[in-house]
């Protein structure tokens, strides 16, 4: 066992008591195999029960414990104590409204997701059993389907910091997930919902999203794909209009 002492410096904010965010420090001992989420649990259970943060699966699947840790968005459940320096600074996800301590309001983020119509659209008559997909076709969207919608990407994006109406990387990954789905038939409608001034063209390929994605999705690569498809669609439309 390799036990080490850490100082957890946590940004606190209680809307009922605090006019502005404040900082609290806690001394936490963690084994090298423990995650930062374990440390937050020790604080909540034994030191300060008022500490507020989200957690659910604790295994990198639900995305609840996304927060800014030492200046970078990550999942607290996926960050090992042994990979961190002695002082660990916790802040809520940037650019999302803070509800309390490390809990942010995810509604604006989830609303962006709804804008890209995040469900299969196919008006062809359904087959007797299911709409089949080959392993190769499934492979095309393999990365995009692993998104857990934790919000790490969108809240790390400088374009989103500057414009809260910008759709953001997570919504683009969701759009790409269906555009790449060979069973879907709504590519044109989805592209028209993402290819606008507060959509794809506000992405400046900064790559912050790629750096923080806990599922290691090539987010900017998916955005670039949507950009290329949108340009192709627009040009094809122009040629069509000219001929007509």
């Amino acid at each position: 066992m390799n036990r080490k002492n850490y100082t957890f410096r946590i940004q606190r904010f209680d809307p009922e008591k605090d006019a502005a965010p404040r900082w609290d420090e806690f001394a936490v001992a963690l084994e090298s195999h423990e995650r930062l989420l374990d440390g937050l649990g020790k604080i909540k259970d034994f030191m300060d029960g008022s500490l507020t943060y989200r957690r659910s699966c604790a295994h990198g699947i639900c995305g609840s414990c996304a927060m800014k840790i030492n200046g970078k968005n990550r999942l607290a459940c996926q960050t090992l104590a042994r990979d961190m320096p002695e002082t660990v600074v916790f802040e809520p996800l940037p650019a999302f409204p803070v509800i309390k301590d490390l809990v942010t309001d995810m509604d604006p983020f989830l609303e962006k997701n709804a804008e890209v119509l995040p469900y299969l659209m196919n008006d062809e008559p359904p087959p007797e059993r299911e709409r089949l997909q080959s392993p190769d076709d499934q492979h095309k969207m393999l990365q995009a389907i692993t998104c857990i919608m934790c919000g790490c990407c969108t809240s790390s994006c400088p374009s989103y910091w500057a414009d809260k109406e910008y759709l953001g990387p997570a919504a683009f990954v969701k759009a790409a997930r269906f555009v790449l789905d060979t069973r879907d038939r709504a590519e044109d409608e989805r592209l028209s919902r993402v290819a606008h001034g507060q959509g794809l063209w506000r992405c400046h390929s900064i790559y912050n999203c790629v750096e923080v994605c806990p599922k290691e999705i090539d987010i900017t690569g998916h955005i670039a794909l949507l950009k290329r498809l949108s340009v192709k669609k627009e040009w094809a439309g122009r040629r069509f209009r000219k001929k007509g």
Binding site: N70, G71, K72, P94, A95, H204, Y207, N208, E211
Partner: peptide
């Protein structure tokens, strides 16, 4: 907004 700079964000800042 304080956020850890990365190569990509450095390139973007230089570009801007």
């Amino acid at each position: 907004m304080r956020y850890k700079p990365q190569t990509g964000s450095l390139a973007w800042a230089i570009h801007r």
